[in-house]
Amino acid sequence: MPYHKDKQQAFQAAQQGYTQAVNANEQRITSIGKADYGKELAHLTQEVNEAYVQIDKALEVASEHQYEQLKQYQQDLQSLMDDISQ
């Protein structure tokens, strides 16, 4: 039972990190052309990096379904960062 709980907690932490990164991106988008854009971009970068760490930890113990979802989160975050760098 503790192993299952650890898997679930790791997945939930990764999910929360992903959500926070997506929210930070929304804040960045609303700040385009405004004075605080740089601050929002830095915040987004920090949130994405933290989400990657959480996802990597969760991947180590994930079930098959969780693994697929976590990989999708990674791809989504990579796409988000790729869009910014273009």
Rank of each mutant, 00 (worst) to 15 (best):
I84D: 06
Y52K: 10
G38P: 00
V53H: 09
Q27S: 10
G17I: 05
V22N: 05
Y18Q: 02
Y73W: 03
D6P: 12
D36G: 04
H43M: 12
L80V: 01
T45R: 07
Q12C: 09
L70A: 00
F11A: 05
Q20T: 10
I84Q: 05
K57D: 14
V61A: 02
G38A: 02
K71S: 03
I84E: 03
Q12N: 14
K71Q: 07
Q8I: 15
S31L: 06
H65I: 14
L77M: 01
E47Y: 07
N25G: 03
M1P: 13
V48K: 02
Q12T: 15
K7G: 06
Q75Y: 08
A62T: 02
Q46K: 10
G17A: 00
D6A: 13
M81I: 05
Q54V: 11
Q46H: 10
A13Q: 13
A62S: 07
E47Q: 10
R28P: 02
N49H: 09
Q66R: 01
Q15S: 11
V53D: 08
S85Q: 13
D6T: 15
D36Q: 00
Q74M: 07
E64S: 09
Q8S: 12
V61T: 00
A21C: 03
Q66D: 01
G33H: 00
A42H: 02
A42L: 08
A62H: 05
Q66H: 06
Q9W: 13
Y18D: 03
H4C: 14
K5A: 14
E64G: 03
Y73A: 02
Y73S: 03
Q72S: 11
H65R: 13
A51S: 02
F11L: 01
D36A: 02
K71A: 04
Q27A: 14
Y67A: 06
K71H: 04
A42T: 07
A51D: 02
I55T: 04
N23P: 12
E26R: 12
A58K: 04
I29Y: 12
K7Y: 08
A14S: 03
A21L: 01
Y52A: 10
G17F: 03
S79G: 14
M1F: 15
V22G: 03
Q72A: 11
I29W: 09
K34H: 03
I32C: 11
Y18F: 04
L44C: 04
I55K: 04
R28L: 15
